[in-house]
Design a protein around this nucleic acid. Sequence first.
DNA 1: ACGGAATGTAATCGATGATTACATAGAAGA
DNA 2: TCTTCTATGTAATCATCGATTACATTCCGT
Lengths: 217, 217
Amino acid sequence: MSSRQPAKPRARRNTSEVRPYHHGDLRRVLIDAALQLAAEGAEISVREAARRAAVSPGAPFRHFPNRAALMAAVAGEAQRRFRAEIEVALDQAPAADPFGRFRAFGLAYLRWAMRNPAHFEIISTGRYFAHGSSAELTRDNAELIALTEGILTEAAKQGLLRSADLKRIQIAGRALVYGFARMNLDGHFPRWGVEAGEIERMAEGVIDLFIAGIAKP
Amino acid sequence: MSSRQPAKPRARRNTSEVRPYHHGDLRRVLIDAALQLAAEGAEISVREAARRAAVSPGAPFRHFPNRAALMAAVAGEAQRRFRAEIEVALDQAPAADPFGRFRAFGLAYLRWAMRNPAHFEIISTGRYFAHGSSAELTRDNAELIALTEGILTEAAKQGLLRSADLKRIQIAGRALVYGFARMNLDGHFPRWGVEAGEIERMAEGVIDLFIAGIAKP
DNA sequence: ACGGAATGTAATCGATGATTACATAGAAGA
DNA sequence: TCTTCTATGTAATCATCGATTACATTCCGT
């Protein structure tokens, strides 16, 4: 959450604390408000975002043609944060150890998804904005996928894999990780979800199980 | 507000084709209408369901306290169909072959999910009705989970598994299958989705990969 | 047959996404 | 500096939706 800068009282009238007619960067503020809305578990509504930006209900439509476009922008921002965190984790895993990298990737992925469930859902579903409406999002996602492809290719090159069908392994890996994230999101971990650490530990175990499954014995 | 066309002369009594004041089984008809709405890719709205049932907008609320309750009922019905199909598939797999049963289960699961994406989403998300509001759904789901537990337990008893951590295997298996279904649902299979058979074949491959991964070498 | 309980209708409310006409400010060019 | 163009915000308005309330109609048990 970066601090924004209205910072321009633009003292027109004698009443102090007058918000200038033109908002500093309304687009940005609306996206942040929407992200916060989601994080609070509330529905994202254009009006509520406008309300939080202290702006009229019609103002957002100067920056987004419709609600879906706002959602796409929100998804883009969330995805940026998501990807940044994953890349940090990957930077700390040696490139020569594909399984270690896969593990780091999966763990970072799942940790972020479990700590930012609402944002993860917005990213991953495409239900809120017309599908493929955000080129940035699509590209970003493709790069993430390419990352995992690279990891698997390296593993194959080192002869660590039991099967040669990389595509199948990759889809399975994505399905496993994505599925775990969504199970958490969709409430498939009923009770023991109270202790979040328990789920994160389970995530770790599931990832390790997968790696053991694809590794050459 | 009055610009809305009434459009319905409200056929008088003397005409044939008179719907009686009391609908036969409105509750049922509303659920079916909602299911069809979902299958058409449209949002489920109480009003639209009422419209399709040729009934006033307030009528549904005699049968469901709110929209979420309708959605829960819809989910219950969809889950019933889902489960029925899975049990048929399981009945054709010999009980003594746990892997075969797992495979049959996964395939039936994924085929239904891919052929009824909207219904599957309603079942699996709990976003549309307050979570756990449908006892039937929860129970049904628990039974499905118990089924997979039984399969794994049998596999362990026969000494087919490489790891003894059944819970971990089970979570991983669920995550894998659920994740694959949701990837399809959430548009993660971009283009080659045109040929649906391709995805089903991939689902098969992923399941087999998983089985090979947990099987004792 | 009667009267209460179910069930449907009509009217209405508040919230939402969206559009339109208008107001204001910031900046570019004379 | 002054003028004007354009980006951006406001106000008013619509249609749709979920939900509630008062009333109407039918069903069913006594």
